[in-house]
Write a protein that binds this DNA or RNA. Structure first.
Lengths: 301, 301
DNA sequence: CGGAATAATGCCGTATGGATATAACTGATG
DNA sequence: CATCAGTTATATCCATACGGCATTATTCCG
């Protein structure tokens, strides 16, 4: 015979009642059944757990030790069940999130806040990555979900847009248009430009170039950079003007002004992406929360 | 359905193999049986533990968490079994031992040594008590086994003799007979005596009185005491001579000599006593070891 | 001494759980 | 592209394990 929880449950109950009839009643079985369960338990252990006279029952030393173990054991079993249910419900576990630099100042904080209040027991692991790094990390499973911009060509991945970034112009405070708040791109045709690296920010690069082309000029590049705060910093240092996503406004540099672009062209989408075959229960919840938090963030700014 | 170890064992095995057929083979059941076990497990938990395609099987997040719990659980179960067996075999647990003062210098140390080498994991709790205190403590279960002298009238207790103490004479170094090594009691008829309290040491008291009576005199009491080292100490201080159990020789006081008694009368038995209804598995082993250690001790001295 | 309480035993029916055969599906291979 | 090998799920059957009931044996108590 092999040890089963049924026997352990019965034994613990009996050890509390110290009376076969009452214990059996509590267990919703008949007294002879319990009698035989306990005998079977003692047989499998090869140990006498109870010292019984016809009149009363008491635990032996081994029975006492075993009872204590069994109580802990049953609690552990329940705990295991509950943990499984919590993890399955996505209320517990871990989620590895990658994100692009621009969302650091943008929708990432409100998304994380919203998620953490709903799922406080889920551990979030955060990784800032470029888009292509994210796609690679998602493919190999290093990351569960990514916050990035299209295009996402990999067809092992699914994606869902959660918001749009508009482009605005960043100008040094000293610039003639700095206080205007709204300008046409063509007004900047003779200004030096701080631009994004083509390699790491291909979508920004091509979009901005297209905008300038539509405005009838090719930007005169004075400096290149990858991260938004670097670009804005360079603008603030007087290196030129730049076209940046609207989240740059959150950087609040004293020497930089921002202006909206007339004939505002379409922005760029920000997406969530994850593996098609991912089964993480936390994932859909995160996607949902990110979408609404993203919407609220855009509405509020 | 209710959670059973059978399901947990199967699940752990499957989580290791990640293949129903191989896992079933290891479990010595057929693959469909395992299939249904796992389905039943998932149903009782209300949680999907495995993500299965027709081609391969992998753990879900909940499954991983549950697997980890289950591994620990199975180890705990085995540990509980082993502990029960060890306790039942008397290899583990606790034993409360009471003993009379005189055994402190006598057979108690060798007994404890012998027992501890055989059963190193059994915790020994030691209590020095008078005989009547021991009987009371044994009755109420405060103590599991006692080392004492007869008579043991209580019929809830069992006893077993493990050795005999002989009586010898203790003399101050300055006493005329100090160097003889062997004297007749009648030679001491005019000496002042240090004697045991009648109350606490009734057997010693009556035996010693009987010996003196047989030698034709009533001892002249100069001082009374309860504990052997006190009696011997008083002899060493010149308060008189005394008749003491042979263990007193082990006290090694510089101002005390000992002498054997001619026509050496019978000594007094030392016994083990324990409750008739005690089920402590350690107890018979202790009794056995105490008996042989006692014999060896007497043989060696 | 009789009755109440309690654990064990005997016997029987059923529901549980495993085996066997097979289906359904997926990759791999020639 | 067809076939095969490998894998999980389903269907069916059957043994047996387990619980219920009736009864026994023992002990305590009035």
């Amino acid at each position: 015979m092999t040890l089963e929880l049924r026997l352990i449950r019965s034994f613990v109950c009996l050890s509390e009642e110290l009376n076969f009839s009452r214990a059996a009643e509590r267990l919703h079985i008949a007294q002879p059944a319990l009698s035989r369960q306990i005998m079977a338990l003692e047989a499998t252990l090869g140990v006498q757990l109870l010292h019984r006279t016809k009149r009363k029952v008491e635990l032996t030393a081994a029975g006492t030790a075993f009872r204590n173990r069994c109580c802990r054991l049953l609690l552990d079993v329940m705990e295991a069940e509950h943990e499984a249910r919590r993890v399955a419900a996505g209320q517990e576990g871990a989620l590895a999130i990658s994100f692009i630099n621009s969302s650091t100042y943008g929708m990432l904080p409100p998304i994380l806040n919203a998620f953490r209040t709903r799922f406080p027991r889920v551990e979030l692991k955060l990784f800032e990555m470029t888009i292509s790094e994210q796609i690679q990390a998602l493919r190999v499973g290093e990351v569960d979900i990514g916050l990035l911009r299209p295009p996402i060509s990999d067809n092992a991945l699914m994606s869902r847009p959660i918001g749009t970034q508009q482009f605005i112009v960043a100008l040094p405070r000293s610039h003639p248009y700095a206080q205007v708040g709204r300008i046409s791109l063509s007004a900047l045709k003779n200004d030096p430009f701080v631009v994004f690296e083509r390699q790491q920010s291909s979508l920004f690069y091509s979009r901005i170039n297209a905008m300038c082309e539509a405005a009838g000029f090719v930007p005169m590049v004075s400096q290149k950079a990858t991260q938004i705060h670097t670009v804005v910093g360079l603008v603030g240092a007087g290196m030129g003007v730049s076209i940046v996503p609207d989240v740059a406004k959150n950087l609040q540099l004293p020497t930089v002004s921002f202006a909206q672009i007339e004939d505002n062209p379409a922005g760029v989408d920000v997406c969530l992406a994850w593996r098609k075959d991912s089964t993480l229960p936390t994932l859909p919840a995160f996607a949902e929360i990110a979408a609404t938090a993203g919407r609220e963030y855009l509405a509020g700014s």
